[in-house]
């Protein structure tokens, strides 16, 4: 681990926490069979902070993202959300998941429901919001992400970029404390990436706490306070975006950046 340079949390230049700790992972370990996918992960995300997680494929970044709302269980360590440890399977977990929205690489909109229904379902079922109120909220959110005119269509009738923006609206409808993005633009055609990133930058400006697994360096520079670089299940380096992209300290980060920056 000679090249593992983890940022000193007190370092003034590296991180500028915007609020109190909201998501706290400490000593998190996970195995897939014999594969050690997360190794002693310590990560604190503060309220209002945008953290970009970057790293080679198979580095564990998606898994890390998915453990935060317990779509993946962990073998050891703790994860707390706003001071509350993540509960085991059950109603308490369902409540907590509503507090941490998730946006998936493959959108995962409910295929049998209209765009509007996709955004009202969670409000009505999980938060017991009255259907009329849920529709109003949903339309406001669809307006905000720019797809209000598609409200009555089915997901399959929308472009990938539109679907992903609906997915963001669906997550926002639960009024989450934080949003997790698992490679939100990796499945999109190039011309649709910006419309999704624009929405995400807007959210960041509005103070949403976000953990974003992405390789979009432009987004990291525009919106993130911190970049977390992962490799082989470890957090290898943490830095502010400018520092990370221009002067990465670890050999592994330099190697990775040289590969994605070649073209």
């Amino acid at each position: 681990m000679a090249d593992s340079v983890t940022a000193d949390p007190a370092a003034p230049s590296a991180t500028r926490p915007t609020g109190d700790p909201l998501l706290v992972l400490s000593g998190v370990n996970k195995h897939f069979g014999s594969l050690h996918v997360l190794r002693d992960i310590d990560l604190t995300v503060h309220r209002g902070e945008v953290v970009v997680v970057i790293g080679p494929s198979g580095s564990g970044k998606s898994t890390l993202c998915r453990t935060i709302n317990r779509l993946e269980t962990i073998d050891s360590g703790t994860i707390t959300i706003d001071g509350e440890p993540i509960p085991a399977e059950g109603r308490a977990l369902a409540r907590l998941r509503a507090d941490v929205g998730m946006v998936f690489q493959s959108f995962n909109l409910f295929a049998h429901k209209t765009v509007l229904e996709n955004v009202t379902l969670g409000q009505v079922k999980a938060k017991k919001v009255k259907p009329a109120q849920a529709r109003t909220t949903a339309m406001e959110l669809l307006e905000r992400v720019g797809v209000a005119n598609q409200a009555e269509k089915y997901p399959a009738q929308l472009s990938g970029g539109q679907q992903q923006r609906v997915a963001i609206a669906r997550a926002l409808a639960m009024k989450p404390k934080a949003l997790l993005f698992d490679e939100p633009t990796s499945a999109l055609d190039p011309e649709m990436i910006n419309e999704v990133l624009d929405v995400m930058v807007g959210l960041a400006r509005d103070g949403m706490t976000m953990v974003v697994v992405t390789h979009e360096m432009g987004f990291a520079r525009r919106a993130a306070q911190r970049v977390v670089f992962m490799d082989a299940g470890q957090v290898v380096e943490e830095a502010d975006p400018e520092t990370f992209f221009t002067a990465p300290r670890s050999e592994r980060a330099r190697d990775f950046l040289s590969k994605i920056l070649t073209h």
């Binding site: 709302n69 109603r91 049998h112 079922k125």
Partner: peptide, 27 residues
Amino acid sequence: VGVGQAEAARAIGLTFGQTLTSVVLPQ
């Protein structure tokens, strides 16, 4: 039904039963 459908349902806070009856079984 793709596993992503159930994951998305769980991610917005639906319980196991709600996930089955509102999202998975209809599909």
